[in-house]
Design a binder for these strands. Structure first.
Lengths: 264, 264
DNA sequence: ATCTGTGAAGCGGTTCACAGCA
DNA sequence: TGCTGTGAACCGCTTCACAGAT
């Protein structure tokens, strides 16, 4: 998951719910596909299916943008594409810098989805002098010494951090100091930024851990019945005692199951 | 953000809230760092700061796991690490296959966060015969013809899709048919899966678009002190007419590119 | 007849504030 | 006294169900 930050203390009820904003790109993608197939209109039902949401939610979402549909008919694809693009700010060009050109940075640099939606890779930046000048995805890597200059000259306001976790915060600080106000962070660290700067986080490890949690539950359910075994088995494996003594599984979830067994 | 899927129709009031589960990896990371520095205990306040959340939320989250803290003192670091690991299912080994070894797949294969938390890259799979046998991050790439065999033999239940969008659904279908029940999808597509299969999505383009939305708002605010200049002004700039026939597409897709690509 | 737009109800998650324990 | 654990208030998002437009 990625985490948003400080989106106005709800001063005035100006505008669109965050959850809706997060889905607009989804709708936009589905609409773009329809547009390419020259489909003139879609119903909320069809578009919702294509975007993987339910139709009530979609209609509610669109209602925040305005009344762009036609009752009894549906939505005009081209018109909606335009309205959503405008709402998201994609009708303008956003120069982006990517810092840290390892495997991940290179993957991002070559990602088609960037260029295709108003984003332009303004520069690739890496601290390794050996990388400097080397073209990645057709763009020459620049040295991090020039970070501030690049950002100021190109008027970059969005930065992507794909560096090791250890240097992410300092890279972040430099980006912010140079004028960047939105950051997409791939490093597994909590970045601290001043007010007014947005940070979104993409964390591969976290996503996998969430999957593992649900996977574990599934496994536990199939072979239910031995739930009685409880944590005791697991507890025998390597449980650092909390404090002085007892504490032995005082309380669990409402169901008290919590398997802990079942390999893949 | 990534999107969770079908987590039981809330039949009964099962365990831990999804939002809490999503934060457990965050706490775990912070705790691991403390553990490495041999810090014995933390208060909810300190740990919350390290994880980037507020302390009330953290305490509430932990309350779903049980009473693992000591009033007046705080939480035992080692003990909490163990409890959260167990809750997330990280005390067991999870073999993972990565399908699609482009730049992104290679980045994932080499990502340290995998191995460090109970995940093991069981296989790298790619459809390109030229890749077969070539080692990436020390692991030889295998051809996708063998996908089913690999999954069954290694008992893989988690799959990562890092292929181009065009083939993501069929890769997904094969993974599921072979027994995979959790999927982490990096391709910009909505995957459809049968009940009981979890999908989480990581979409770089969507994250950027959300940032762009907020970035645009910031820019708009600076210039007006209080004015409520409605969006309709912008609508006058270049709006494709809502209705009025003409599908004969003048501009087919404002951003002229398909979401068909993913890694480079 | 059909499909959008939306008030209202429902639900899950966050925050508050304080009781309870060390 | 200090900090956890938690009921209850609160808030935002989702879902429902239907009024309203074509």
């Amino acid at each position: 998951m990625a985490t948003g930050r400080t989106h106005r203390p709800a001063t005035r009820s100006r505008g669109i719910p965050e959850a809706t904003v997060a889905r607009l790109p989804l709708y936009l993608r589905a609409l773009t596909a329809l547009s390419e197939r020259s489909v003139p209109t879609v119903s909320s039902e069809e578009l919702a299916a294509a975007a993987g949401v339910n139709s009530a939610k979609l209609r509610k979402d669109f209602s925040y943008l305005g009344s762009y549909g036609t009752r009894g008919v549906g939505y005009d694809v081209e018109y909606l594409v335009y309205q959503i693009s405008r709402e998201l700010g994609l009708t303008q060009d956003w120069p982006v810098v990517i810092v840290g050109i390892g495997n991940l940075g290179a993957a991002l640099a070559g990602y088609g989805g960037f260029a295709s939606r108003g984003f332009r890779v303004a520069a690739l930046i890496d601290a390794d002098p050996a990388m400097t000048g080397k073209p990645v995805a057709g763009i020459p890597v620049q040295h991090s010494d020039d970070l501030e200059k690049i950002i100021e000259e190109d008027g970059v306001s969005i930065g992507v951090i794909a560096t090791p976790a250890g240097v992410a915060q300092q890279v972040c600080d430099r980006l912010v100091a140079a004028g960047v106000t939105s950051i997409l962070n791939f490093a597994p660290t909590v970045l601290s930024v001043p007010d007014g700067v947005d940070v979104r986080k993409v964390d591969l490890s976290i996503e996998l851990q969430i999957l593992a949690f649900h996977e574990q539950r599934k496994a536990g359910e199939e072979s239910n019945a031995e739930a009685a075994a409880e944590a005791e088995t697991a507890a025998a494996v390597a449980p650092p005692a909390p404090r002085g003594g007892s504490t032995g599984g005082s309380r669990k979830g409402p169901d008290g199951d919590v398997p802990a067994v079942m390999p893949a």
